[in-house]
Simulated assay, not measured.
Amino acid sequence: MARIETQRIDIRVPVSLLEEIEKYQEEHSIPTRTTALLELVRLGLSETKKSKSSKKMKGG
């Protein structure tokens, strides 16, 4: 399997948001906070793409 290039970043997250991320992590049996965060980012980006496609189809 090809190795994916990664870059390390440091971010500060409000405690309330971190608690939501950790809740998602626990509910989905995700082993690490990083993996949970990446999954949530991917899901959010996917929804954004769907929303843009939907607007284009409606003429928006």
Rank of each mutant, 00 (worst) to 15 (best):
1 M>E: 13
2 A>D: 09
2 A>N: 11
2 A>L: 15
2 A>V: 15
3 R>K: 13
4 I>R: 15
4 I>W: 01
4 I>M: 15
5 E>A: 13
5 E>S: 15
6 T>G: 11
6 T>Q: 12
6 T>M: 15
7 Q>S: 13
7 Q>M: 14
7 Q>A: 13
7 Q>Y: 12
8 R>A: 15
9 I>C: 06
9 I>N: 09
10 D>N: 15
10 D>M: 14
10 D>T: 13
11 I>K: 07
14 P>C: 00
14 P>V: 03
14 P>S: 04
14 P>K: 12
15 V>E: 15
15 V>C: 10
16 S>T: 08
17 L>M: 10
17 L>Y: 10
17 L>D: 02
19 E>L: 12
19 E>C: 04
19 E>S: 05
20 E>V: 00
21 I>Q: 07
21 I>A: 07
22 E>G: 01
22 E>P: 02
22 E>C: 02
23 K>L: 11
24 Y>A: 00
24 Y>G: 00
24 Y>R: 04
24 Y>M: 02
24 Y>K: 01
25 Q>P: 02
25 Q>Y: 06
25 Q>C: 04
26 E>T: 01
28 H>Y: 07
28 H>F: 07
29 S>T: 01
29 S>C: 05
29 S>N: 12
30 I>M: 02
30 I>L: 07
30 I>A: 03
30 I>V: 03
31 P>F: 05
32 T>M: 01
32 T>H: 06
32 T>G: 02
32 T>W: 12
33 R>Y: 08
34 T>K: 09
34 T>P: 01
36 A>I: 04
36 A>L: 02
38 L>P: 00
38 L>H: 11
39 E>G: 00
39 E>F: 10
39 E>H: 11
40 L>M: 15
40 L>K: 03
40 L>W: 06
41 V>W: 08
41 V>K: 03
41 V>G: 02
42 R>F: 11
42 R>Q: 09
42 R>M: 07
43 L>A: 04
44 G>E: 11
44 G>V: 00
45 L>V: 04
45 L>R: 13
46 S>P: 05
46 S>N: 14
46 S>M: 15
46 S>D: 14
47 E>K: 13
47 E>D: 11
48 T>Q: 10
48 T>N: 14
48 T>C: 03
49 K>N: 08
49 K>R: 12
50 K>F: 08
50 K>P: 01
50 K>D: 06
50 K>A: 07
50 K>Q: 10
51 S>R: 10
51 S>T: 08
52 K>H: 12
52 K>M: 05
52 K>N: 12
52 K>P: 04
53 S>E: 09
53 S>T: 09
53 S>L: 11
54 S>L: 09
54 S>K: 04
54 S>Y: 06
55 K>S: 14
55 K>Y: 09
55 K>L: 08
56 K>N: 14
56 K>T: 14
56 K>D: 13
56 K>M: 06
56 K>I: 09
56 K>R: 14
57 M>L: 10
57 M>C: 04
58 K>Q: 13
59 G>E: 04
59 G>V: 03
59 G>L: 02
59 G>F: 07
60 G>V: 06
